[in-house]
């Protein structure tokens, strides 16, 4: 297990990080068989396999958290909770195929628990967007951002993501998963436990909804 070894050897991590930065290459999309292999080993209690299966899946887990987290919560904090749940409970997963849906459920529950605790702390103070979403449990607010005409490209991206948070759950989640690292529709379907064709339809519809929202907000002004 090269990755694990390099992580334990002095300098291995820094060198790996440097290599990643130098190459500028995105994290490769892991193969389904590879994930199921590592999941099986992790479920059987192999410690190194737990870390590896987490490494292979953590990026899309972050996207799930992004889709469900309350605005005030940090993705990184919630990821820590998901990682801890993984370490403690992965042995409870019955079969490797069920691993990713299980991990997604853990992530959603962590995000929802954070939202509930936040509401308690905030004394149930809420702000409704008027579109059926409780803004207190959404990730971003479009009014937090400056007007679109003065935004840089990255700020335009942030604003677009804020708009994506206004999409209904069924569209927001697959759209963010598709954006995060180029997961295939089949893989997203496996994670969300939905047919591949449903995912393709939802992503396509979600893109149109986002486009319409952006257009309405003059984000994508007509040339």
């Amino acid at each position: 297990m090269d990755t694990e070894q390099s992580r334990r050897e002095p300098g291995g991590m820094a060198q790996a990080a440097l290599t990643a930065v130098a190459s500028g290459a995105p994290q490769g999309v892991p193969d389904r068989d590879e994930i199921e292999l590592w999941a099986t080993r992790a479920m059987s209690g192999e410690r190194g396999a737990v870390e590896e299966v987490w490494r292979l899946n953590r990026r899309w887990v972050a996207a799930i958290l992004l889709a469900h987290k309350p605005r005030w919560a940090e993705v990184e904090d919630l990821l820590q909770e998901v990682a801890i749940s993984l370490v403690r409970k992965v042995h409870e997963v019955r079969e490797a195929k069920a691993f990713r849906p299980w991990l997604r459920t853990v992530a959603v529950n962590v995000a929802l628990a954070a939202a509930r605790s936040g509401k308690r702390r905030a004394g149930e103070s809420r702000l409704n967007t008027g579109e059926g979403h409780d803004d207190a449990v959404m990730g971003h607010r479009r009014e937090d951002l400056p007007p679109p005409e003065i935004l840089s490209d990255s700020e335009q991206g942030s604003r677009l993501m804020a708009l994506a948070m206004e999409l209904p759950d069924g569209y927001r989640e697959p759209l963010l998963l598709k954006a995060v690292q180029g997961l295939s529709y089949r893989e997203i379907g496996e994670i969300l436990d939905l047919p591949e064709t449903t995912i393709e339809t939802r992503v396509a519809r979600g893109r149109r909804m986002l486009r319409d929202l952006a257009h309405k907000n003059e984000l994508t002004a007509t040339p």
Binding site: R8, P26, A62, L86, V87, S154, V180, L210, T220
Partner: peptide, 29 residues
């Protein structure tokens, strides 16, 4: 054209928002 541009921008924004995942480990060993 808009969809292509939105996809690129959203991809960059989501990548930036989830980059912290690389720092979170399920280390045990």
């Amino acid at each position: 054209a808009m969809s292509l541009r939105d996809h690129a921008r959203l991809g960059q924004a989501v990548a930036a928002a989830t980059a912290c995942a690389e720092r979170v480990h399920a280390t045990g060993a």
